[in-house]
Design a protein around this nucleic acid. Structure first.
Lengths: 100, 100
DNA sequence: GCAAGGCATCGACAACTGTCAATGTATTTG
DNA sequence: CAAATACATTGACAGTTGTCGATGCCTTGC
């Protein structure tokens, strides 16, 4: 039998980029926390939860944002992150594979 | 509200390792081909399908195997790869997020 | 207005990853 | 046995990634 037509290159690239955002234990934990939380989570809480410097925490959150999993807003001095409610379909499906 | 208990470190590490295996367009395409195919696919077919050297193709297939997505067998001179039928549950769930 | 605190950005560095060329190992064929 | 073919493994190299320290930008409180 002939091989199936490949996915469009752009599709494969986008999927790979999305999985790359998930390919780190810290970011997995972050998404787990956000999935379980009712409310947005402050960067300061992430910084307290992980044994990592604050710039590193910001770096991971920026990657999750860039990949379309989360968005953020500022209230006063604090920056809060939450799962995007209009998350891309593929992102939502991938997120569903992380245990609650 | 208190933050949810984190995932066990081992769980987060395993998930991250699994997503790392998916974090490459070539490997996405390989899984796509294997999902669509009725039969195991020969390394030579992968080598023909991608504009990559044979060692690189072997490298990608080895990563998919190590991550638990595929297994392989040899028949004569050829090596065939197929989706594992006893794929880990998390791997099966993640694979389901790749378009058929 | 000034100091302090929360966060993002920048620069640097070690570790890892994708790729190739070269080589090694089986298996088939002559 | 010799040559050829299919694949895996090794070594090397450039590009990427996770991490940190230092710095910059805002916002709040004095």
């Amino acid at each position: 039998m002939a091989l199936a037509p490949p996915l469009p290159d752009a599709t494969a690239d986008e999927l790979a980029a999305m999985y790359k955002a998930l390919a780190d234990p810290t970011r997995i934990q972050m998404l787990h926390m956000l999935s379980a939380a009712e409310e947005p989570i402050c960067v300061c809480d992430f910084t307290a939860a992980f044994d990592l410097g604050q710039p590193t925490v910001s770096h991971h959150l920026a990657k999750l944002k860039q990949a379309g999993f989360v968005d953020s807003f500022k209230r006063g001095v604090w920056a809060f992150y939450r799962l995007r409610d209009d998350m891309p379909k593929s992102a939502r499906a991938a997120l569903a594979t992380i245990p609650r």
